[in-house]
Design a binder for these strands. Structure first.
Length: 267
DNA sequence: AATGCGAACAACCGCTCGTTG
DNA sequence: GCAACGAGCGGTTGTTCGCAT
């Protein structure tokens, strides 16, 4: 397929954007939108290619962009999501409001990779992130290996309870799903449809003393009672109770909750 | 003060995918 | 079915900045 010349065209500017260019681009997008990036620079009077304009807008000028350092929660979420999705930065960014794929990619390469390596080097590290992360480190593969999916978010694939094997402490967290062929397309699709977090989930969840754990979840007395797939009631009962894993973030809980049909309960 | 080096981030490049004629 | 095109994605590079020497 023939490639478009894009920025190679003579006369088009490259390199860092000036405040003036930013102003022009913002003003133009606010006034006319960005239906056609290729035509935009000409219309706006910018000596840039459409690709460059799009990138500048998406990664820097968009009004909903959250600037500043990543919180610990955001970093943990990135690690978890990277474990599930691999190097699919845009998919990860979609789960982190206000953050761009480029930003996440940069943070991953500069911070989080190192953090994971450190965790790996620590004998008592949690380990749940590191093994998979190291497999995925070089790219989006994460396939053709037994995958520790970290959580049974693939409940949609309706595994039998025998496919899960409880390993250590958390009733859900450490269930392993061994699959012969790794993550399948439909499972990735399932991850893609990760729902927006329902407002009332947060208000309920954060009413807990520990802001990282939904109050809606209580430790079950007998973890072996858990049956998969979980009913909404079971999901509400599923406990965690292991403070060392508190930093693992909320989205896991929400996913379990939603997949168990908990949203209807909230509504 | 000058220099070297690494971290962080912005931007570019090349590719794939989806759409359209 | 095919080619052309635009948009989007992920990998990579270039630049800037802060810190150590």
């Amino acid at each position: 397929m023939a490639r478009s010349p894009c920025c190679d065209k003579m006369g088009l500017k490259k390199g860092p954007w000036t405040p003036e260019e930013d102003k022009i681009l913002v003003a133009h997008v606010q006034k006319h939108g960005h239906g056609n990036w290729r035509a935009l620079p000409k219309q706006a009077g910018l000596l840039r290619c459409g690709k460059s304009c799009r990138l500048r807008w998406v990664n820097y000028l968009r009004p909903d962009i959250k600037r500043g350092n990543f919180s610990r929660e955001e970093e943990d979420a990135i690690i978890d999501l990277h474990e599930k999705l691999g190097n699919r930065w845009s998919a990860i960014a979609a789960r982190l409001p206000g953050r761009t794929d480029n930003e996440i990619k940069n943070v991953w390469h500069t911070n989080l990779k190192k953090r994971l390596k450190k965790k790996l080097a620590t004998p008592n590290s949690k380990g749940h992130s590191t093994a998979a992360a190291s497999k995925c480190d070089s790219g989006s593969a994460c396939q053709s290996e037994p995958v520790n999916l970290n959580f049974p978010g693939k409940i949609s694939s309706q595994p039998s309870s025998s496919e899960f094997s409880s390993i250590t402490d958390s009733p859900i967290r450490n269930m392993e799903i061994h699959m012969n062929t790794g993550i399948k397309d439909e499972q990735m699709d399932s991850l893609e449809s990760f729902p927006e977090i329902h407002e009332s989930f947060w208000s309920d969840a954060l009413s807990s003393d520990n802001s990282s754990m939904p109050s809606a979840f209580h430790t079950v007395n007998d973890e072996s009672q858990l049956q998969f797939p979980l009913s909404p009631a079971d999901a509400l009962e599923v406990g965690y109770g292991h403070s060392s894993r508190i930093d693992d973030g909320m989205e896991f809980w929400y996913d379990v909750f939603i997949r168990a049909g908990g949203l209807q309960e909230l509504n």
